[in-house]
Amino acid sequence: MSVLVNKDSKIIVQGFTGKEGTFHAEQMIEYGTNIVGGVTPGKGGTQHLDKPVFNSVKEAVEKAGANTSIIFVPPGFAADAIMEAAEAGIKVIICITEGIPVQDMVVTKAYIEKFDCTLIGPNCPGVITPDEAKVGIMPGFVFKKGRIGVVSKSGTLTYEAADQIVKAGLGVSTAIGIGGDPIIGTSTKDAVQLLMEDPETDGIVMIGEIGGNYEAIASKYIQETGNKKPVVGFIAGQTAPKGRTMGHAGAIVGGHDDTAEAKMEIMASCGIHVVKSPAEIGITMARVLKK
């Protein structure tokens, strides 16, 4: 068992032959990820990186048995790519693309509800189950195999957390980068729930940032289900000024509940081990696991 992706996942790359798609597909294949092909409309029937190229996701599902997709399609077309994957029967859709218009995601999120699929992202680093599958753009070597799950809105901060977890003598079961956009497919709570129910995960690191109420909802879920596994939490943006977007389109402090301080209070009140310093994520997890 593992969460979302594993060695048996049959993965296709949407936007396969583009610059980003090619570069990261190479990295994923090198990691040992089971890439079964890719989709670039109009280039179907050709080969790229020694893998078949299909004209549509439907074709990739029929001919290569694809069940997982990673999307590198440019922002103007990415929402369409997500819908195409859902329609074709892909179960796990991971959208890396940054800069998708918000209204496109409002429609897409509503559209894919009727399908049995999980969307991760957009604007995320992807998902990695170490030694099995890297379906994302993260540096694979940082994520050593272990039993700590990671949920994060951010890319490099996820790598930072994973690095600290490994240096603290632990390792990662699955790391899920849920993305930093205002509308994302899988919320913090959804991702935490997957890891809570995963028998290969003993503890969870939950990294949020200012904006939205995802961390508060996840915290309440953790408390209501009896704090079954220790959770270490950090919220980036304690020093962010009100009303300014901090890089991620979703990272903006609106009302009081959006602030890092308010979120950390809620998390702590729900029994989460909140760290104020991003340098203490790994050592805190090691400490609470020993208890």
Binding site: S154, T156, E160, G180, G237, M246, G247
Partner: peptide, 11 residues
Amino acid sequence: GAGLAMATMDI
């Protein structure tokens, strides 16, 4: 990275 940038401001 935006998340790490915010975390760096915090530290």
